[in-house]
Amino acid sequence: MKRLAGLGLFLVAATSGAQEKGPASLEALRAEIEALRDPSPAWRGIPWKSCLLEGLREARERRKPVMLWVFIDRPVDDARC
């Protein structure tokens, strides 16, 4: 729904931009950036935890093993690998 709203805003802003020359507005740029985003890419299907303690606790509660994915990236969350 958010993506549809973003697309709608983008269409409105783009139409406005076509009628008057000048740089894109902040709202138009935000909408265009939002339109680039896939709201649910397949690789987000796994809800990875970043806290090992939280993962081990849930594993004890659910009586399941932990799958650990050790990945190389820069030291911030959600950065590409």
Partner: peptide, 30 residues
Amino acid sequence: MFSDPDVVKRVREEFVPVALKAALVNGMAG
């Protein structure tokens, strides 16, 4: 690898997934 629907389904249902930065695991983060 983690875009395969069968893999995603099994990891969600049968495991608790935790992603750790290599720098932590390798003792490189202090």
